[in-house]
Amino acid sequence: MTLFPDIRIVPFSRLTQGGRWRAEAMRSYSAPQLLWITKGQGRITVAGVTRGYGAHNAIFVPAHTMHGFEMTGQVFGSAVMFPGMADLDLPDTPHHLRIRDGQVQVEIATLLDGLDRELSRKRTGARRAIRHYAGLISVWLERQIELAEDVTSIPVSARRLAAGYAALVEREFRTSKSVSGYAADLGVTPTHLTRVCNQTCGRSALELLTERKISEARRLLADTRAPVKDIASALGYASPAYFTRAFHARTGRSPKEFRKGD
């Protein structure tokens, strides 16, 4: 148990405990987080936009933002979670930063090491030290965002629409709402929404929606004892049979097989 439960550092090795799907599956957290990648590569999708990542990448994910990342081989790094700390003035939007300056890389590594030490030791003034380290990390992030160049070729309008869709999906994926319903809410046609999603993350709008539903289904199957029929209903599927077919198509296993083998 840490002295300051509002903040924690989670090594990437723990994110994949219980299966790589736990890191790769689309999900969101109630707290903002900063991912600091020190080694490895892959692709990460945040708010409907997919980009490649590598060593010395810093990725900020706001609270309640749909995301998931693919790992190519071993990936090392840490996720810093900031629950209940609105006074840190963290960004409201996602940011993907490629940190090329060696000194700047050392700065964030030093701050994370210091924060980790204070979290794991019962020393005088630890609470103040932890809060100060968190504040310095937020300042570091703000400065790097200010210096960053927007190198993506995806138009801003497309990124905004994808982010809007991802945000709606994150709020309503537990319902039976279709892509057409989401498109209507966004004031676009389903065809246009799918075209934009393919442009921003290489997935159709339906694939993004299905992936979020199945990711939650995996979590519920692995971490709860809820009956399959209740999980199907909770995720807006018309019937347990339809849910089972969708789950098998996505994972190669039935819900019961996944639960037994997880």
Rank of each mutant, 00 (worst) to 15 (best):
M1E: 12
T2N: 12
L3S: 09
F4V: 01
P11M: 06
F12G: 01
F12M: 10
S13H: 11
R14Y: 13
Q17N: 14
W21H: 06
A25D: 12
S30D: 10
P32K: 04
P32D: 05
W36Y: 10
I37Q: 00
T38P: 06
K39R: 15
G40C: 10
G40N: 02
G42H: 09
G42A: 07
I44Y: 01
T45E: 12
A47P: 08
V49L: 13
T50K: 08
R51H: 13
G54I: 05
A55L: 04
M66L: 14
F69S: 01
F69L: 09
E70V: 07
M71C: 10
V75F: 08
G77C: 08
V80Y: 00
P83T: 06
P83L: 07
M85D: 03
D87A: 13
D89E: 14
T93H: 13
I99Q: 04
D101S: 05
Q105L: 00
Q105W: 06
A109Y: 03
A109W: 09
T110K: 13
T110L: 15
L112S: 10
G114E: 09
E118I: 02
R128Q: 15
A129T: 05
I130D: 03
R131V: 03
S138W: 00
V139D: 13
R143L: 13
I145V: 11
L147P: 02
D150M: 14
D150C: 13
V151R: 14
V151F: 12
T152F: 13
R160P: 02
L161N: 05
L161R: 08
G164D: 11
V169E: 00
V169M: 04
E170V: 01
E172K: 09
S176A: 15
S176E: 15
S178G: 07
V179T: 04
V179Y: 02
D185S: 13
D185T: 11
G187C: 06
V188K: 07
T189R: 11
T191E: 14
T194A: 03
R195N: 06
T200A: 02
R203F: 12
S204F: 08
S204W: 02
A205H: 01
L206K: 06
E207G: 02
E207L: 03
R212K: 11
K213P: 04
I214G: 07
E216W: 05
R218I: 04
R218T: 02
A222Y: 04
A222I: 02
T224P: 01
A226T: 11
V228Y: 10
D230I: 12
S233M: 11
A238V: 09
A241D: 15
Y242C: 05
T244Q: 04
R245E: 13
F247M: 00
H248G: 04
T251D: 00
R253Y: 12
K260V: 11
D262S: 13
